[in-house]
Write a protein that binds this DNA or RNA. Sequence first.
DNA 1: CCAAAAGTGTTAGTGCTACACCCATGC
DNA 2: GCATGGGTGTAGCACTAACACTTTTGG
Lengths: 214, 214
Amino acid sequence: MIESTLVSVDVIVLRFDPDARAVLVGVATRAQEPFAGELALPGVLLGRGERLRDATTRAVTGKLGLAEKSVTATGQLATFDEPSRDPRGPTLSIALWATVTRSTGDLAVWSRLDAVPALAFDHDRIVADCRPLLADKLWRDVPFTAGLLGPEFTTAQALDVTESLTGDRPYPANLGRTMDRVPGLGRTSEHAAALPKGGRPPLVWKWSSEAVRA
Amino acid sequence: MIESTLVSVDVIVLRFDPDARAVLVGVATRAQEPFAGELALPGVLLGRGERLRDATTRAVTGKLGLAEKSVTATGQLATFDEPSRDPRGPTLSIALWATVTRSTGDLAVWSRLDAVPALAFDHDRIVADCRPLLADKLWRDVPFTAGLLGPEFTTAQALDVTESLTGDRPYPANLGRTMDRVPGLGRTSEHAAALPKGGRPPLVWKWSSEAVRA
DNA sequence: CCAAAAGTGTTAGTGCTACACCCATGC
DNA sequence: GCATGGGTGTAGCACTAACACTTTTGG
C-alpha cells in the first residue's frame, strides 16, 4: 500500500474595494512554523472526504477571519506538485479562487492584485501562474464575475475591476458592449452618484435572478 | 491532525491512429475490485512525493502496458472531488491527459473519442467534462498538439485530428492558415502519398527543433 | 464656464467562415 | 477523362479597438 501525499488547498481570495477602486487579494500572517510571521495565502490541509468547496471556505474563515456567509463564489485554478514546496515534506497544493464581500475580517491583510507582497512557500509562483487564469474568467465565468462585483454595480466599478485584473482600462463604451453580451447581466435605468471629482454619473448594472442563483 | 484524502490520478490517454483516421482513447479492463472486469481510465494512487507527471506515466505503462518512451506529452485537466465517486471511500481524482505514440500496448482497449464505452467509477463524467478542455488545447497548446500528431504529419491527418476533437471538419484551406499561426510549426516542400482513393497528395508539416524540445 | 467622466455612434482593422476555382493523384 | 481530395484566392461577416462627439455631473 502506497502512502498518499498530503493535499493542501491554497486560496486566492479576491475582494473588490470600491474606495481603493481596485481588486484586493487577502493574505494572512502565518501563526505557526514553517514560515511563522511571514505572509501566505490562506490554506488548509484537505480533510478525508472533504469537498474542495468546504475546504476553501474553511481556509477563508479560519485564516482570514471572515464569516462563512461572506464567501460569494469559489472555483478551481490549478494543481502544484513541486515536492519541495513545503519544507515539512511533499504536499500537493490545489489552488482555488474565492470571491468575498466587503466585510474585511480580523486576520486578513489586503493588497492590490498588482502589488502582492512576497509570500511564503511557493505562493508567489501560485499567484503569478494563476493571474492570467483569473483575468480570463472576468465576463466569461458568470459566478466569478458576479461574486466579485456583487448583485449590482456601476460601469465605473466594472472599469476598475477590469483594469485590476487585465492590466489595462477599456473604453467605457466598449466595456458596455462586452457586458451586454454577458448572460444574465443587464442595464438598469438607475444612475449612481458621480465621483467626488465630478463627471457623469455611471449606469447601474444588475444580474437577473436566475444568474445569481447559478 | 487531520487524516488526508487519498489522491488518485486518472489519465485520458490519446493516440492518433492514421489508419482509423481518428483520435482514440485508451482504457483498460480493471483487474481488481471494485468494478473488476469493467472498463476504466488508467489510474493510480499518487505516491507520497510523487510528481503528477510520474504518476501519469506509471498509470499509462502499468495499466495499458505501453512503454514509458511512448508517452510523448502530459498535462493537467481538472480535479474531481465527489466523495462517493469511489466505493472504497473518499478519494480525490486529478484528471490528466497523456499523448502516446503508435505502439498499442497489450492491455489497452482503444475506442474513438466520440464513442467511448461506459466506464467504471465516475469516469464517464470525467471524459464528458474534459472533452471540451481537450478540444480547446488543439493548435493552442503546442506540446499537446505535437504529442498527438508526432514530429511531422500531413494536412489530411491534421484534418482528421481536428474533426475527432472538435466534432466538425474544417476546410483544408482554413486549417492551413490556422496552422501557419501555430508557433514552431511550418510547412515543408514535401508531399505525402495520396489516399488509396486518389486525390491530391497532402503537404507535410514539421515542428521546428525548438518547439519539439519545449 | 470648465474639467472630468460616462454614454452614443461610427469607422478601420482583424480574423474567421464559406465557397469558387485550380491542381495532383488513383482508377 | 472522371472522381476524389488537397491547395489558392477571395468575398462576406462578426467582433474588436479606437476615437469624435454628446451628456451630465462637481467646482
